[in-house]
Design a protein around this nucleic acid. Structure first.
Length: 491
RNA sequence: GGCACUGUGGCCGAAUGGAAAGGCAGAGGUCUGCAAAACCUUUUAUAGCGGUUCGAUUCCGCUCUGUGCCUCCA
């Protein structure tokens, strides 16, 4: 079997910048720097947002599994992200909810952290906030002004695209060309811009705008794109390994980040590998708060008519599709995922409780080629994090465990346990149910479970007495509260 | 209008220049007080038209379809 160091050498990542799958070679051997655009904390996350963070959680976990020392930076945008009417998202929400902007930020940051923890998404190494890096953002803007790549106009500062294009190509990430960017939707034109495609680096704040800071250009606040350039380079260096985010951020957000950093540091690219996760759709359309076409984690219960729901199932559902494919969220899809997930967990339980001492030594190497299977699993993830393919390999082994575990070589049982744990829990990041149960269990839960167990015993007695009316009634009642019973042969 | 991506059974979803995974569902069966579960067996697919090739679902071109982006979006 290949050593982990050999597996490490064969990781391929699809690079949005080049449009090709490329071998992953980090800038510094054994170290990886990754930056992912985090949320603007003006609302609760919807399931589409979760998809992106789950996808990058897998990347983070896998890189660590390969032995890399990973610095994962994921920001919190708490200022500067404007709505289409040019009002700051946070500021607008604070008006609507009657709260301080920072209360909004705190409220939705907590909600964000709580949700990701439920989904077993590991926290990043650094989670910087835009408002904590105002000075650095001003510094970078000044640097761009000095290079004549930005200009001040009435207390606001804009990036000068025409000037930039004299030295560097713009649109290398999105493949857009500035002269072909026809703006049909956007009705508001900012007259003070030299060019309609110039984007804001610093915005002058109106007198009633409480989210503002002093700057060389007067009171104002930073633009949306500059925070990411500043925070990624501050913690990862002027060029780093991986930059990620949702595909909807590719243009203009990532393109602008890229232009800012190339302009400020005169580098070829901000990151070597750009990764974009595709959209989670609902009714075939992108999930989006603003159009109302979105679901939150708590909406799953009513949407899928489910009484109980393990967040693991949603995580599994997400990982069942490749991160670069569009994925449609459906009730049927989630229910399928639940069935599939249960099978895999079932096989792990069998494996964990299996006493391999009862197995006899045999020479049955052809029955299940474990080293071949492990290799296949690694090849799947190494191929641009192909989790659907990994999961299909898990199904294959899960079938063998559930039906033919006695045929497996004795000396391979522990190996299988080890790698199932690696793939299912460490890499895919599914949470062991026992952990979840102990976390959520309380006194009343314990009492309830004792009661349920008594009822099951009571029903067993009824079955022994062939009291089918009573036993069926209990089965039906228990099924209503989500306790499913499976009978086996009694006599 | 421009750019990017996509199209595989009833559904989800892999792979591949040389017999098209896996799961769910369906059908038949075993088992069973019944239902379910479980197990065994099993039907069905590469959008269309060209080109390259001994051979294309895979590579190339065109058409069609769907999605995303084009200054709110993960």
């Amino acid at each position: 079997m290949d050593k982990i160091s050999d597996i490490k050498k064969n990781l391929k990542i699809y690079n949005s910048l080049t449009g090709k799958k490329e071998l992953f070679i980090p800038i510094n051997k054994d170290y990886v720097g990754i930056y992912v655009c985090g949320p603007t904390v003006y609302n609760h996350l919807h399931l589409g947002n979760c998809r992106t963070f789950i996808s990058f959680d897998l990347v983070f976990r896998y890189l660590k599994h390969l032995g890399y020392k990973v610095r994962y930076v994921r920001n919190i945008t708490d200022v500067g992200h404007l709505e289409s009417d040019l009002e700051d998202k946070i500021f607008k929400k604070s008006r609507l909810e009657g709260l301080e902007p920072m209360e909004i930020v705190q409220k939705y940051t907590l909600s964000f952290h709580n949700l990701l923890s439920i989904l077993n998404v590991q926290p990043p190494s650094i989670e910087p906030r835009a408002t904590g890096h105002i000075i650095e953002q001003i510094d970078m803007i000044q640097k761009l002004i000095k290079k004549k790549l930005a200009y001040e106009m009435n207390g606001s500062v804009y990036f000068n695209l025409k000037e930039y294009e004299k030295f560097y190509p713009y649109g290398i990430l999105s493949k857009n060309k500035t002269n072909q960017l026809v703006n049909k939707k956007f009705k508001i034109t900012i007259v003070e811009k030299k060019n309609p495609q110039d984007f804001s680096l610093w915005k002058k704040a109106s007198s009633n705008h409480i989210m503002s800071w002093n700057s060389p250009w007067g009171k104002g606040f930073p633009g949306w794109h500059i925070e990411c350039t500043v925070m990624s380079t501050k913690y990862l260096g002027e060029t780093f390994d991986i930059h990620g985010g949702g595909i909807d951020l590719k243009f203009p957000h990532h393109e602008c980040e890229l232009a800012q950093s190339i302009g400020a540091y005169n580098r070829k690219s901000l990151a070597h590998y750009w990764m974009h996760t595709n959209m989670l759709t609902l009714n075939g359309k992108k999930m989006s708060k603003s159009t109302g076409n979105s679901l939150g984690i708590n909406d799953i219960y009513s949407f899928c008519e489910k009484k109980s729901f393990s967040p693991n199932i949603f995580r599994f559902f997400i990982l069942k599709s490749h991160y670069r494919s569009v994925m449609n969220f459906t009730k049927k899809g989630l229910i399928h995922a639940e069935k599939e997930y249960t099978k895999i967990i079932e096989s792990i339980n069998i494996l964990e409780n299996f006493n391999s001492k009862t197995l006899k030594e045999k020479n049955n190497d052809n029955f299940f080629k474990i080293f071949f299977w492990i290799k296949k699993c690694y090849e799947s993830i190494n191929d641009d994090f192909n989790t659907p393919l990994l999961i299909s390999n898990l199904f294959k082994v899960s079938h063998i465990i559930r039906h033919n575990i006695n045929e497996i070589e004795k000396c391979h049982i522990n190996l299988l346990k080890k790698y199932m744990t690696h793939f299912v829990f460490d890499i895919l990041g599914l949470k062991k149910e026992e952990e979840q149960k102990t976390k959520s269990s309380s006194l009343s839960d314990n009492r309830l479970s004792i009661l349920i167990e008594r009822l099951i015993k009571f029903r067993m007695e009824a079955r022994k007495q062939k009291n089918w009316i009573l036993s069926d009634r209990i089965r039906k009642e228990l099924s209503h509260i989500g306790v499913k019973l499976h009978d086996e042969k009694l006599f």
